[in-house]
Structure formats: structure tokens, C-alpha cells
Design a protein around this nucleic acid. Structure first.
Lengths: 242, 242
DNA sequence: CGAAGATTTGATAACAATCAAGGCTGGTGG
DNA sequence: CCACCAGCCTTGATTGTTATCAAATCTTCG
């Protein structure tokens, strides 16, 4: 990794950002070189291992972050321990909710994750000055809202088999930043996490993966690795329209 | 009520907006008098009856609206007819997703609804000029995202009884703009819609309402009217924390 | 009053959860 | 290198919750 704080001569794009996966497509993409420089000064790169909590449920969240690499799960828990994953975030998604304090959820790395962490206050100040940034953050939130609502349909109305197929489709689609659906990929989640994402038990998840395998919809190389010979067929099993 | 399109002398707040329920708390609240005047010129008041579709699934959405009065359901449907309500919007919520085109869902009035309808393009233009408006819209979207994720927990991990109690709590909380939870209220939805909101069948919804009634958690005056003697008890039955 | 639609209630069936083993895999140490 | 252990995953048996099917009742409205 390049060192975080270098810049080349004429206040160009900071070197730390030049090759950054999360810049194009990510929120940083809207910033001018001078704004980027400003951000970089207050920014910390952080590497997080799987199962490490990034933000706790109910934290007064003083930081935001861009995911540079890896997958983060967002989850909510009931007092008795029942848990629901309410979002999976892949690079180059933005983490954290500037402008809103009250929404309690916890964020945890599920793979090795690289983050660019910013103070919330800085983002809020920059957003007030830069309409493009504000708008970019807004659009990202709208996309998350759309994804959340799609998932509500999955949770409320789909069968166990459809949910599992839907999950596999989602991972295939999002695991590779900015390519089409992957034909072959590693699941970022354990069976337990998949269950928590789908509102099922691990046993049911396991049985449905077995079923999809026996029906030839997927191949299972090992616990984590999945091959999808025909993405349309997977979509049909997930009751995904288009 | 005052008449809709008059203005008083010095380009003050348009009369149509002065007493508007949706202005304070709503997105219009951030607009200056002159911006409001601009908006009012391009705005249509619209009254919509129950079961009338406001936006169709997959429409290229050219309009947005503020809910002035009433309740709107947002829903998604699968090819085979299974349906899930993914959001209930009460006055003074904002409808529509400026800045994002692709999210397909349908919006339908569930009560008599009064709307202020704006061209999407106007909102986008104003938002680019007025950071406060952009920010206000962003915050509203963040709140909807938070609500959607809360509901994912309900759909994924709660029992039928908890879901119904959760729904009753939600209505009690939101039916009266800006008061505390109502002790007594009319359900805006039919049993069929409640079922579609909760990912259940109408029979199960009915049985759970009966159960909550028999246990004394609620009283049922008639099909629509509910009385909640003890809101804390209802929350406990819904497994809502605080 | 009668009819249509909405809601409730009852009986049964299906799907997923739970309880309980058993098997695989990856890591560790002999 | 192999054996063993722990954790994760799969499979099997059974139970329980909710869906489905069916009918009765209640409401509303002409």
C-alpha cells in the first residue's frame, strides 16, 4: 500500500487515492483534488479482520467510512438474541449515516476489510459546501433503500429455496465491483450469517443449497466456493423478474 | 381552509402553503418564500381515493409528491402475484425518488389522500441550488432506510403475533403527525393489506388480532378501530426494545 | 331485506424450526 | 506425514407455526 499522506506537486489527486478502488464509483469520486486533499489529511486507513465489529448497535456514530476492499454486514439484534442482517456492503460502498443519529445497527467485517475512515463532522461540512457530494451520498442512500425494499419482498414473500437462490444471485452480482454477475465466486458469509440474512436457520440454508446443487442450478466446489453454470436459471429459482 | 393560490403582498409564503400540514416537518419547510412561490406555480394539488394507484411499478417516474393528508402504501409484486408492502407513508412524507430512476415499486392510496405533486425535474433543480433542500431530502431518505431495516428485522425474525403487535405499534406511532403514540385509532389498512405488510396471510393476521384482544393487549371496537390501553404492553408483545 | 365483500373461525396440510447425530475440513502437534 | 481435534456444515427425525382450504358470520350499502 502507498503511504496515506503523500501528495505530488500541484495539489493533484493525493497518491493514496489515485489507485483507490473506492474512488471511482465511490463517494470520493465527486471530490475535487483540493477537497480530496482536505479529506486525506483527516482520514485513517484501517484494516479489519473478519468478525471484528466496526460500529456497535446504538453507538453515537462519530465516524463514517468508505469500504476499499472486502464485505461488511449490517445487522440488528433483538433482546433475546435473534438477529437479522439488514444489509451487505461491498466495496466501494459508504458506511455510516451522516445527518442522522438515531438508527441503531451494528456493522461487522465478514472478510478482510480495508476502510478509509472519516470523521462524520468533516463529511457533513464538505457535503454542505459541495452539492455534488451531498447528492452523491443521497443517491447512495436511495440505492440502499431500494435494495432494502427488494430484500423485504424476499423476506416477506419468498420460500426458503427462493431466498437462498436470491442470496447467491446477489453475491454473484455484487462481489466483483463493476463487472457483470460472477459465474464462480466464494461466499463471503458462513452458513450462520446466510441464515441471519435470509431469516432462516442454518439447517434450512444447508438443505436448500443441497437442493439447488442436486437440481443442477449450482455446483458447490467446497463450503465457500459456488459455481453458477446458468445465471438465468438461478434467477428463475429466485423468482427474480427481469 | 384558505384558498389555494392567493399570495399576500410582499412575496411572503404562498397562502396555499401557510396552513399546510406538510410544510413544517415536510420537505417544503426548508424552502424560502420565493422558492416556495416557484414551486407552487408548478404544483398540482391532487385528491386521491383509496385503492387508486399513484405510481405504477416500473413507471418512469416524472413526478414527486408531498403527502398532505392520508396514508400511502408502497408495494412490490412478484410475477405470480405474491405481494409485499415495503413501506407505509403518512403525512407529511415525501413520495418519489428524485436522482434515481431504476427502483420499481408501486404507490397506492389506502385512505383518502391529498397530495402536492411536483415535477421531478423541478425538485432536482431546486435541490442542486438549495443545499438545505438536498439535505432535507437526504435525511428523509435515511429515515426511510432505517425504517425499512427495522421492518426487515420484523419480517425475518419475528413471530406472527409479534409482527401484528409491531404493526399496531407502528400505526399508533405514526397516525398522528407529531404527537406521541395514539391510544385509540383507526387502522388505515384492510386485513389483506396488513397481511401483505407483515408477510402473513389474512387468516393469520385475524387470528393474532383475536389473540391480542383475548389477552387484553388491545381492544377492538370494530374492524378498523383499535384501542391500546397500555402502549408498553403492546411494545413488549412486539419485542420492541426501548 | 338482501347481497357482496370483508373478516373470523375451524380443520388440515405444508414448510421450516428444532432437536440430534454424524461427517467433513482445516489447523495443530506429535 | 499423519492423527486428532474443533468448528462448521450436512443430514435425519420430529415438532410447531403458519399456510391453505372451507365455511360461517359480520358489515356495509343499495
Amino acid at each position: 500500500m502507498t503511504q496515506p499522506n503523500q501528495k505530488n506537486s500541484h495539489s493533484e489527486i493525493p497518491i493514496a487515492c489515485v489507485a483507490c478502488h473506492a474512488r471511482e464509483g465511490g463517494v470520493c469520486g465527486t471530490l475535487s483534488p483540493s477537497q480530496l486533499a482536505q479529506v486525506v489529511r483527516k482520514t485513517a486507513r484501517r484494516r479489519v479482520q473478519p468478525q471484528i465489529e466496526i460500529i456497535g448497535q446504538g453507538d453515537g456514530i462519530e465516524h463514517c467510512a468508505a469500504i476499499v476492499r472486502g464485505v461488511v454486514k449490517l445487522s440488528k439484534m433483538l433482546a433475546d438474541g435473534r438477529q437479522q442482517i439488514v444489509g451487505l456492503q461491498f466495496a466501494p460502498d459508504f458506511l455510516g449515516t451522516p445527518f442522522l443519529r438515531e438508527c441503531s445497527l451494528s456493522a461487522e467485517a465478514v472478510t478482510n476489510v480495508d476502510l478509509c475512515v472519516f470523521p462524520r463532522a468533516l463529511i457533513e461540512r464538505l457535503a454542505a459546501e459541495a452539492p455534488d457530494l451531498q447528492r452523491r451520498l443521497h443517491v447512495e442512500t436511495l440505492k440502499k433503500l431500494c435494495a432494502a425494499r427488494d430484500w423485504m419482498l424476499t423476506l416477506g414473500r419468498k420460500t426458503a429455496k427462493e431466498r437462498v437462490a436470491n442470496f447467491l444471485y446477489l453475491v454473484a452480482t455484487r462481489i466483483n465491483f463493476e463487472d457483470g454477475p460472477a459465474r464462480e465466486f466464494d461466499l463471503p458469509l458462513s452458513r450462520a450469517d446466510i441464515a441471519d440474512y435470509l431469516g432462516l436457520t442454518i439447517e434450512t440454508v444447508s438443505r436448500q443449497i443441497t437442493r439447488l446443487r442436486k437440481e443442477g442450478v449450482i455446483r458447490v466446489e467446497n463450503r465457500r466456493r459456488i459455481i453458477v453454470p446458468d445465471i438465468r436459471r438461478l434467477m428463475k429459482n429466485a423468482s427474480i423478474d427481469s
